[in-house]
Design a protein around this nucleic acid. Sequence first.
DNA 1: TATTGTTATACTCTATAACTATA
DNA 2: TATAGTTATAGAGTATAACAATA
Lengths: 151, 151
Amino acid sequence: MAKHPSHLESHLGYWLRMVSNAVSREYARKVEGQGVTVAEWVLLRALYEVVTAPPSALAERMGMTRGAITKLANRLVAKSLVSRVQNPLDGRGQTLALTPSGKALVPRLARIADHNDAGFFDALPRADRDQLERILRTLARLNHVTDIPVD
Amino acid sequence: MAKHPSHLESHLGYWLRMVSNAVSREYARKVEGQGVTVAEWVLLRALYEVVTAPPSALAERMGMTRGAITKLANRLVAKSLVSRVQNPLDGRGQTLALTPSGKALVPRLARIADHNDAGFFDALPRADRDQLERILRTLARLNHVTDIPVD
DNA sequence: TATTGTTATACTCTATAACTATA
DNA sequence: TATAGTTATAGAGTATAACAATA
């Protein structure tokens, strides 16, 4: 027997958001001391994977507009974590890359993410964690959520 | 064999955020026509479940500050979706509740959420969807993400 | 004094649209 | 004209801290 009106039955997206927000908020708190935000971490991580990319490619990959990337990149350049150099072959193009300190920071942020994940997910049985990761990656792929490591 | 440096191995929280953001962004787009935002939907849904609540209780339940609830509630009161009345027993207290139009709106928003979910999750086998919901609810409970229907 | 709620302030995140420079 | 990127503007979301009224 359903315990709720049918229209409040499931809402996977709602639960996803609740849990995701909690995890991200806690991560934000933990990396505050490293001087970066969650959005910055996402950009740094993406850039770590592709090594160099024009803003437009990151926008595509991260599902954001170019304007949003510009703003994020500006902050990261100001923090000397990202470099922006002009494409010599096309006067319009810019190339973003991690600076040495940016490259050094990513593994530290990743370690913090691992610890943060542990705090939230270690209470789950290992099988559930594996399931969850598999399902999330499947969803990302099926729905063209694009920051997917190319294995 | 690991295909990535160990520090970019998993990051469940990262994937959670990627997928959740995609789902929420699409939902936001769909309910724009109803004149509400995602955060407003969360408050409306919470209020639908508890019927009436002081701002402090919603803040607790939704994991937000009282100030943030005030701001959200102000917008919803301006839209005549929520009412705010003084607690007659305690001059400090306020009680929030859905107005008739608020009450009528929630099922419509819920239906939109269902359709939105379908677009993202129907590509998964039924078993995976059930797993995902179970795991998310478990995580919400274990980590005191508090907007949990009391069954 | 402690508590409830609001207000003031500030910052991140993100989008849209206009603009600039180059192709 | 079309494209890459930046800038301008705006609004949502949220937090912290100060404040007012009440207990």
